[in-house]
Amino acid sequence: MSTTFFSRYHHRISYQVILLGTIGLLASTALVIADLLTREEIALRQAEDFRATLEQVLPPEIHDNQPQDERHLLLLKDGSTLPIYRARLDGRVSGVAFQVRGRGYAGPIEILMGVDASGQLLGVRVLRHTETPGLGDKIEVARDPWVLTFNGLSLGKPPLSAWAVKKDGGQFDQFTGATITPRAVVQAVRDGLILFQNHQADMLQRAAEED
C-alpha cells in the first residue's frame, strides 16, 4: 500500500524538501504551459477590446487605418508623456484619441476621448471608474446616454465658462443626486481639450513628419 510506503519517510527533512520542490516544479510547469497556451488568445482579446473602445471615440468613417497600431508617446510641456492614438484618412491625421483622468467621488475616473483635427470632440467614453453604482455610474454609456452629449462640442462651443455642470453655472446636466461625478467628467474633458489645443501641432503635424 502506498500509505505505508510513503508515510515511513514523512518525517525526514529530505522528504519535505523533495515534496515541496516537486510540487513547486509541477505547479510552475503547469502555469508555464497554460501561459503559453493562452498568451496569444489573451493578447488578441485585449487588442480587440481596445479596438472596440477606440472605435467608439474615433468613428470608422474618419479613418482607414488601425488607430490602435498608431500609438505614439506625446511629450507634454511639463515633461511627462501621454500615449495617443492617431486616426488617418488617406494618410492625413484626421483625429486623435487619448486618455484623461478625472477626480471622481470614490476615486479616479479614466476617460478616453477622441478629438478630430479641428478640435471637435468625436466621442467620450469612460474606461474605468469606481463611482457609486446606480448613482455615479450613469457616466457609463451602457447605462445612460449622458456622455454622448459631448459629441461635436469643442472649446469654443460652448464657451469655456460654460464648460461646467449646471449647478456650477455651466451648461451640462448633472444627474439628480450626484454632482461630483459629472463635474469630474466635464472638467476632465475640458482639460483634455485644452491639452489638445496646447499640443495641437504635436498631435497632428509632427506626427505626420515622423512617418
Binding site: S2, T3, F6, S7, Y9, H10, H11, Y15, Q16, L19, L20, I23, G24, A27, A30, L31, A34, D35, L37, T38, E41, I42, R45
Partner: peptide, 29 residues
C-alpha cells in the same frame, strides 16, 4: 498519501494558487 503533515499547508496553498491562476488564465482567454 504523498503529502507529509508537516508541510501540508504550503503544499495546499501552492496547489490552490496554481489552480486559481489556471482558471484566471483560461477565463481571460
Amino acid at each position: 498519501h504523498l503529502i507529509s503533515p508537516d508541510v501540508r499547508i504550503p503544499v495546499f496553498v501552492l496547489l490552490i494558487a496554481m489552480l486559481v491562476t489556471l482558471v484566471d488564465l483560461f477565463m481571460n482567454a
